[in-house]
Simulated scan of single mutants.
Amino acid sequence: MKKKLLLILILFLAAASVAAGLFARHMARYAQMPVNPSLDRSVKLVIKPGQSFKDVTAMLREKGLIKHPTKFRILAVYQKATTRIKAGEYRIPGSMSPNRILRQLGEGRVHLHRVTLPEGLTIHETAQRVADAGLCEKSEFTRAATNPELARQMGLSAKTTEGYLFPETYYFEKPVSAETIVRTMVRRFQGVFSDQWKQRADELGFSVHEIVTLASIIEKETGAPEERKTVSSVFHNRLEKGMRLDSDPTVIYGIEDFDGNLTRKHLRTPTAYNTYKRKGLPPGPIANPGQASLHAALYPADTPYLYFVADSENSHYFSTTLKEHNRAVRKYQLNR
C-alpha cells in the first residue's frame, strides 16, 4: 500500500512538474508576444497617482494593448511589478509585448511633451507655444510668468519673468504646473548667464536686468547673427551720449493690442516703452533674448555708429552722422 501511495505521489509530482514547465513556457511566450505585432500606432495611457494595478490592467485591456488580464497580472506578480507602476502619461506602441509594457510602466518612461521657444518671443507668445504643446492653459502660464512673487523667489530684480524665459527646446512630462514650466525656463537662463557675464555687466556699468533689457531690443531689431554686435554698439554709443534709443520694437511692446501697423501717432504717444520720447533703456525687457543677443549686449563691436536703417538686402545700413542716416532712410525706406 505504501509503495502504491509513493508511486501515485511520484506520478503526481511529475505531472505537476510537467504542467509547471508547460505553464512557464506558455507564460514566457505570452510575455514576449504583442497583441498586435504589426500595429505601429501608439496608444495614450494616463495613470493617475494612487491608481491600483487592477485599474491599470483594465485600461490596458480596454485600449487593446493586452488580451488576458489574468495572465498579465500573473506576469506582473512574478516580476514584482504590481507596486512599481509609476503615474504619468504614457504613449505605448500597439506592437509592444506585455513584458515591455511592464518594463516601461515600471521604469516610468512617460511621454515627454516638447515645446520649442525661438529667440525673441514675449511672455504672451511663449504662453501660446506652451498651450499649443498641451502642457497648460495659456492664461495659467501668463499668470505664473507675470507673478511678481514668483519672480522674486527666483532672484529676479523684476516684476515679471519677461526676458528670462530662455529660448530653447524643452521637454516636460504631464501633468506639469505652469509654475514648474516657468521655473525651468528661468533656471535655464540663470545657467547661461554666467558669473563671468555678471562681472562683465558690472564692468560696463549695467545691472543684469539692464543687460537683458538691452539684449531683448537687439534681438527684436535684427535676426542677422553677424549684425548683433554692431547693432549693440549703436545702442551702447547712444546711451553713452545720452541720446534716445529710437527703437521701434520698444514702442510696439508698449502698445496694447498692437495691430501690426506702427504709426506716427504711436511714435508720439508717451509710454514707458517709447524710446522715441524717453531717454535710456525701457523699464524692462521687451522679449526673451537668446544667448547670442545677450553676448552681443555684453560685448558690442567697437564702432562709431549712432544710426542704422533696414536696407534692401534684409540687413541694415549703419551711419555715424544724422546726415548720412537721413540719406540712407531716403534711399532704403522712402525709395528716393
Rank of each mutant, 00 (worst) to 15 (best):
W197F: 13
Q199L: 08
Q199H: 01
Q199C: 00
A201Y: 02
E203K: 01
E203H: 03
L204Y: 11
L204D: 14
G205Q: 11
F206R: 08
V208Q: 14
H209C: 02
H209P: 07
H209D: 15
E210Y: 11
E210C: 08
I211N: 04
I211P: 00
V212I: 14
V212Y: 05
T213G: 03
T213M: 05
T213A: 04
L214C: 14
L214H: 12
S216C: 13
I217Y: 13
I217K: 05
I218T: 14
K220F: 14
K220Q: 15
E221R: 01
T222W: 08
T222L: 04
T222I: 07
G223W: 05
P225N: 02
E226C: 06
E226P: 08
T230G: 09
T230D: 15
T230S: 12
S233A: 10
S233Y: 07
V234H: 01
V234I: 07
F235A: 03
N237Y: 02
R238T: 08
R238G: 00
L239A: 12
L239P: 07
E240I: 05
E240Y: 02
E240L: 15
K241F: 07
K241C: 13
G242E: 01
M243C: 03
R244Q: 04
L245H: 01
D246E: 15
D246H: 09
S247Q: 12
S247T: 12
S247M: 05
D248Q: 01
P249K: 06
P249I: 08
V251H: 04
I252F: 11
I252C: 02
E256G: 00
E256H: 07
E256D: 09
F258E: 14
F258I: 11
F258L: 07
N261C: 02
L262M: 06
L262D: 13
T263Y: 13
R264D: 06
K265M: 09
K265V: 15
H266Y: 09
L267V: 01
L267I: 10
L267F: 02
T269W: 09
T271P: 06
T271Q: 10
T271G: 05
A272H: 11
A272L: 15
Y273V: 03
Y273E: 10
N274Q: 12
N274R: 06
N274H: 08
T275Y: 11
T275H: 08
Y276I: 03
R278Q: 15
R278I: 14
K279L: 06
K279V: 12
K279M: 11
